[in-house]
Design a protein around this nucleic acid. Structure first.
Lengths: 210, 210
DNA sequence: CTAAGTTTGTGCCCTTTGTTACTGTGGATT
DNA sequence: AATCCACAGTAACAAAGGGCACAAACTTAG
């Protein structure tokens, strides 16, 4: 764990801070597909992502979902942080997109380090900024773009995050993330296939040239 | 200005911090409708809202707009803060919704106070949290709700923010905020009028019972 | 008062997206 | 081989929302 922490965070965190994280943090290994955090849950610790990727999504009362953004190596979830600090229930669900390793840091430490370590303060701020910007992107996407473009963006991002040109998801799963229906996704994917941007196969999509 | 600062922030800020704000901050009076901050601008100071209301909106490349949220008394704009800290250009536009009074605080002070005053740190964090939550609400709204409901929500919020049961806007202006067309807004407003929820007049809308 | 401009109302049609229903296909199970 | 089932393709239709055109009502400038 120490090497991973150093590799991922040594440019952000001072040495003693890394030692404290080693001390106080709890390593967590999560297989792809597992829920890390759910809506309505109280959160008592904050995740630092060592490796893998996590998808963060929003759900409304009827259970309709929408993908908000992905977290990648070295990132943390500010919405979670906000819940921690405010002692409120989680507003989002987090699911491991790929097998992931995280360090869970208890909230109390989080506040303590804020006064103690400049590196931590900056990191927490940067995280907020990144999350705000990602959310703005999400808003742009759903407000200004049509589904065609959103789907293309989604596929691109997926390739980037999973580092795999084959997207191993059913059309139904994609539909959930984009908050639309399976039929619509199939339709648009077919269109993209006709444009030679990808190839459709059973249970996976081969990305050619988006 | 001192009384206003005390009235608005004394529950958040320590006395010496308020004095420093008095010292370093620049009072700004903005009439309704004026742009306080625009997209692409570099920002060197952070606004604290003493009175009035500010609407924050997003714009895409084609100039299509979308209202993100309102800022009210005692609040500040985290997106702006993020721009300050990150030294990046503004991602949003801020327009005075009503006549407003703000204190502009230079960025350097902002960072200095972060280490010095717990009250400031907490305030900055709370702001981030509030803004994140508002953005999540916005996402919910555009992702999960249809225009009928969004329009009703919009009108309700407007009444609350301006503290006026008459909404003095043209249908075109409302359409911009909701990122739709004037025709559609007129249509939906007419529907609401038939439901006795409001009365339509030239240049204003009388809210009856939303 | 008249002319010009602004704001709103409305009919008609189009595009995008969602829904339903049915079909086909390949893989797994027995 | 027979069956089942998850997944994908597709047609047909429905609904929401956007665009255009034009009319009506009201406001303002001259």
């Amino acid at each position: 764990m120490k090497e991973e922490l150093l590799a991922t965070f040594s440019n952000h965190f001072e040495k003693p801070l890394i030692d404290e994280i080693m001390e106080e943090g709890r390593l967590m290994e999560v297989p792809a597909g597992e829920t890390i955090m759910d809506i309505g849950q109280y959160i008592r610790s904050m995740p630092l992502l060592l490796s893998g990727a996590i998808k963060v999504l929003r759900e409304d009362e009827e259970g309709d979902e929408l993908l908000l953004y992905y977290l990648e190596q070295g990132e943390t979830c500010s919405v979670t942080m906000a819940c921690c600090m405010g002692q409120t229930k989680s507003e989002i669900r987090a699911i491991a997109e790929t097998d992931s390793r995280l360090v869970m840091v208890p909230v109390q430490k989080m506040e303590e380090w804020m006064a103690k370590y400049k590196g931590w303060r900056n990191y927490v701020f940067e995280s907020y900024q990144n999350r705000l910007n990602e959310l703005l992107q999400t808003v742009d996407s759903i407000a200004f773009k049509n589904l065609d473009q959103r789907l293309v963006d989604y596929l691109k991002k997926k390739v980037e995050v999973t580092n795999d040109n084959q997207i191993r998801n059913t059309h139904q799963e994609i539909a959930y993330d984009l908050h639309t229906s399976r039929v619509v996704v199939s339709r648009l994917l077919k269109k993209l296939e006709k444009m030679k941007k990808l190839e459709l196969h059973r249970n996976y999509i081969q990305i050619v040239n988006l």
